[in-house]
C-alpha cells in the first residue's frame, strides 16, 4: 500500500506519473514529496512507488 495525503491506496508498482494520470490533479499546480523528499517534476515518470511509501501532494491555498 502507498499512503497519499494520508489515504492508503493500492498503487505500489506504478510510477508517480502513472498515478497522477488517474487523478484530477493539474500537474502544473502541484508539488510531490515522497518519504520526506521532493520528487522533481522531471522524475515523475521514473519514480516507481513502493509498498510503504508515503506521498504528500500539495498546492497553494489562500493564507496569511
Amino acid at each position: 500500500m502507498v499512503k497519499i495525503n494520508g489515504e492508503e491506496l493500492n498503487i505500489a508498482g506504478k510510477t508517480v506519473a502513472e498515478y497522477l494520470a488517474t487523478t484530477n490533479y493539474d500537474p502544473k499546480r502541484i508539488a510531490v514529496e515522497r518519504n520526506g523528499d521532493i520528487v522533481p517534476k522531471a522524475q515523475y515518470s521514473e519514480t516507481v512507488l513502493k509498498d510503504g511509501d508515503s506521498l504528500e501532494i500539495v498546492s497553494f491555498a489562500g493564507g496569511g
Partner: peptide
C-alpha cells in the same frame, strides 16, 4: 501576496494562482 501550502484537493479544479 501571501499563500499557504496545503494538501492538494483532487475535486477542486480552480487554483488560487
Amino acid at each position: 501576496i501571501t499563500l499557504a501550502v496545503r494538501r492538494a484537493n483532487t475535486k477542486e479544479q480552480e487554483s488560487i494562482l
